[in-house]
């Protein structure tokens, strides 16, 4: 069994950090993990992408081709990768960026207004990803929310109090 998670958005949104935090939590829970990151073209209108694969077995292809979860943080990313999500998969999109939805997709699409919530509750958009991680902690059954929070606090040593609150907010969203 492998679980595939894709995250994509603009450069600077923390797409790679998000994948790294999820990956580290999975390693702590004894999973095999690959997390590919693509970047470099974001300044010219492209996207940054993290492709995370989690499995109990050694991982062959590290590519996300059948995503179980897709975190879409920009319209360009949403358009580029929405078709990779499986029928039973879930797209978590931030409506502040993904302003146009494709309603023909067979998967579930859930709006997570992480950016607006982060600005409203904590005064800064930078906490949006921690909210998103809270949502994922509850949705992805492989993750133990306690260990995921530990990874957040380990990888981002700053603003621990706010991050903890933002994570809890995310956990309670759905």
């Amino acid at each position: 069994m492998r679980t595939e998670i894709l995250a994509s958005g603009f450069g600077g949104q923390g797409v790679v950090r998000l994948g790294q935090i999820l990956g580290e939590a999975a390693v702590k829970q004894g999973y095999r993990v690959t997390m590919l990151k693509s970047h470099g073209t974001e300044m010219r209108g492209g996207y940054v992408r993290s492709q995370l694969v989690i499995s109990k077995e050694p991982i062959g292809s590290p590519m996300v081709e059948n995503a179980d979860f897709f975190v879409a943080l920009s319209l360009a990313a949403y358009k580029a990768f929405k078709h990779l999500v499986t029928k039973n998969g879930i797209i978590l999109y931030d409506p502040a960026f993904v302003v146009e939805l494709d309603n023909t997709l067979p998967c579930t699409q859930t709006a997570i207004p992480a950016k607006d919530l982060a600005v409203e509750k904590f005064g800064r958009a930078v906490f949006a990803n921690t909210i998103m991680l809270g949502v994922l902690a509850k949705l992805v059954e492989e993750f133990d929310p306690k260990i995921l929070l530990e990874s957040i606090l380990h990888i981002i040593p700053k603003y621990q109090e706010q991050n903890e609150k933002a994570f809890e907010l995310g956990c309670a969203l759905l």
Partner: peptide
């Protein structure tokens, strides 16, 4: 690039 830049256990 995928080996050197990518994360893995």
């Amino acid at each position: 690039q995928l080996i050197t830049d990518g994360f893995e256990d």
